[in-house]
Structures are given as structure tokens and as C-alpha cells.
Design a protein around this nucleic acid. Structure first.
Lengths: 211, 211
DNA sequence: ACCTGAACACCGTTCAAGT
DNA sequence: ACCTGAACACCGTTCAAGT
């Protein structure tokens, strides 16, 4: 390990702090994040952070904000890559669960309740969260225009879908859904049931199809 | 505040520790739980706990175990009180979300990822978690016997339902579903969509019914 | 403007000692 | 068996001081 240099940190310390925090979260989980370690790893005093963030919570909030941005990008990419129709919607559902499973500690920071709803927090967190949700709303609105899903309130429908994939993701991360391929199987089943759940009555699979 | 008595704690200290921990969680959230405060509140040294629990994590685990037990009881009561059929199943879904919202900090201890899936933990935690899940499986099996839900694998179907209500509960606790009555509206909609989602094809509501 | 280093008020946990 | 009290190794945060 090189001796910490005595000069100021070069470039964007704020950026470096966010990256190092996320790397630590991936490596050791949220509990492993200490300002001392992060500072030491960047060759900087453990209080240098306070020039860029109000406190530790604000640093984690920054990590959460970037998580919502990455989630939205993963969802949009899956929707587009899947053809922006029924197949794209399924791809989006799978991408959501995969994002949560592949970035479980990061996902937990986003939804772990560290940023109390009542207490004041960065409006960017709400904005990025709403942005990820909007990807779902947009996709459902497109399906609705094609007559592929019910004519219900699209935000309510999107909340329903969000709750379902979020629930699967949370149970998977928590280890409540265990076994090889169990998460994938549940996701596949849930998306099937979502089709008969929110699909347009006129566009249901043949009644004879069982399972 | 009375002077702490110098004699041993009377009765069941283990029980008192669990009660005090839960009370603190309700009052101040999980972050407010410190062994020092709990000990002081019970008029006991802050290290007395180590005679009854391996460490702080084990105390929280005990709280989580009792949470799963209470959840199961709430679910079974709703199922029975609702008539053990379709109405009972809806009541169970509402009861699940209400339990999480009314006991949000407690619910977060149960599902907050404090008990790593890999690391060793009390088997009672798995057992009580499985018990709560079983309430769902039993109800679905009863509905299936009546021909009210699909002929799918009942555990897979139960996982799907669990993920949905768990997702609604988590979003509600996190403040992601905001507004007066929004949680109730989403729960109602989700249970409607669940009916067309997992309901038996032969038992669907009239196709003309919109919304 | 940006960072340091000492200090402060907290933690959970260990352990020899008491009854 | 059950609990205490001092000690230890950690925390996040504040603040006067440096460049």
C-alpha cells in the first residue's frame, strides 16, 4: 500500500467518495461502510468527506440516487431490446429482478429505509425514484395503446407491477426464496400470472392452456 | 425515575429484554436500539444481556421470530374471520399489508437483511417464517379444492401472492406509495388483479366488467 | 476552498470479579 | 447461575488550525 500523499486529493473527491462507498457496499455490505476506511482508501482524512456531503447519510443517499438511475437504464434497455411490446415488458420484469439480485447490497441501500419519508432528504432521490417508475408507466401506456393490457389507471397498474417485482426482488435478496433457479422460476410464473392479471380480457391466452 | 435496585432482576430477563427491544424499535426505530439504553431501562447492567443472547444480532433475531409469529396469527385470524373462502383470502391480503404498515419498524427487522442467508442463524427464524408462509399455502390449497384458483403448484402460487403483498408492504413502509388512502387503493386493486391473475379460468368475473 | 488532527460523545463486546 | 464494572477497540461528528 503506497504511503498516502500529503497533497490535496486530485480531481473530484466527491465522485471518488461515491465510487469508493459503492465499492465497499458491494464488497462488505452496508455495515462495512465507515468514513474512516473510505477516507484511508482514498488517501484522505476521514473528515474530508464533510466538504462534500452533509453527513454519512447524505453519502449513502448519493449512492441510492445513482442506483435508481442505473435501475432505470437497465429497465429501458430491456424494454427496447425486447421490442417494446409484450416480450419487451417481460424482459423488463426479468431485468428488474436481475438488477436487484446482482446488486443486492446497492438495492438495499435504495430501499432499506435509511431515508425517512418524513425527515427532509435530497429531492434528487425522489426524482430518480420517480424516473425509474416512469419507465414502467411508459411501457404500460404503450401496451395499453396496443390494446394489450387493461384500460385501468396506468399509474395504479404500474404500482401493482412495481410491487410485484419489488416483492420478488426483496424475497430473493433476503434468501426467503431459496434453491437453484427458484428466483427465475418465480419470476417467470409471476409474469405469466401478470398477463392474466392485467392483460386485456380480449387478449388472454387460450382457456385450454394449463400451467 | 426510580433508583435501579441493586438486586438481581426478578423473573424472566430474557422476556423483558425482548419486550424492551421491541418497544424501543416501535418508538425510535431499529437505529434507536442500544444495549446500554435497554439495560438502563430494565435497571440492569448493559452486559447482562449476554447471559441470554449471544449478541445484539441474536436479540434482534428474537424480535424478528416473534414478529413472524404475530404475522401468522394475524393472517390466520383474517382468513377465518373472512369465512375461509374468496372473501377470507382478500381479508388475509389486507391483513398482511396492514400488519406491515402498523408495525413498520418491526416488519423491517423481520425483512431488513440483518440475518444473512449464508451466515448461521437461529433455525427458529426459518421455522416461524415458514409458518407464516404456510398460512398462505393452506388458504390457497383450500381455494384450489373449491375450484376457485388455478390448478398450479400451490407453493409457487403462494410465493407469487407473498411477493405481491410483501412488495406493497415494503413500498408503503418506504413512503414510495404516498397519499391518503393510496396504500388501501393499491391493495384493493392488487387483490382484484390477483383474482384474474390466479383465479381459475372458469371462475372469472364477467368479461363486460371494466376496471 | 479544501483538508488535517485532536477531541468528544457515543457504540458493542470481553473479562475478571463479585454474590 | 446471574450480574457488575472497568477496559478495549471501534464509531460519526465537531472544530480550531493549517495551506
Amino acid at each position: 500500500m503506497p504511503k498516502p500523499r500529503r497533497q490535496y486529493h486530485h480531481g473530484n473527491l466527491r465522485r471518488a467518495l461515491l465510487d469508493e462507498a459503492l465499492a465497499t457496499i458491494r464488497r462488505e455490505g452496508i455495515e462495512g461502510v465507515t468514513l474512516r476506511d473510505i477516507g484511508a482508501r482514498l488517501g484522505v482524512s476521514r473528515t474530508a468527506l464533510y466538504r462534500h456531503f452533509a453527513d454519512k447519510r447524505a453519502l449513502l443517499e448519493g449512492v441510492a440516487i445513482e442506483g435508481f438511475r442505473a435501475l432505470r437504464e437497465a429497465l429501458v434497455a430491456a424494454w427496447r431490446g425486447g421490442g417494446e411490446a409484450r416480450a419487451g415488458f417481460r424482459a423488463m420484469g426479468r431485468a428488474y429482478v436481475r438488477f436487484a439480485v446482482d446488486n443486492s447490497a446497492h438495492y438495499r441501500v435504495m430501499f432499506g429505509g435509511f431515508f425517512a419519508p418524513d425527515c427532509d432528504h435530497d429531492p434528487a432521490l425522489d426524482a430518480e425514484g420517480a424516473g425509474a417508475f416512469q419507465a414502467l408507466v411508459d411501457a404500460l401506456a404503450a401496451l395499453q395503446a396496443e390494446g394489450l393490457v387493461r384500460d385501468d389507471d396506468v399509474e395504479l397498474m404500474a404500482s401493482h407491477v412495481w410491487a410485484l417485482v419489488h416483492g420478488i426482488a426483496m424475497l430473493a435478496i433476503d434468501g426467503q426464496v431459496s434453491g437453484e433457479g427458484a428466483v427465475e422460476a418465480l419470476t417467470r410464473y409471476a409474469l405469466d400470472r401478470l398477463r392474466t392479471g392485467i392483460g386485456a380480457p380480449a387478449d388472454q391466452p387460450a382457456a385450454s392452456s394449463k400451467r
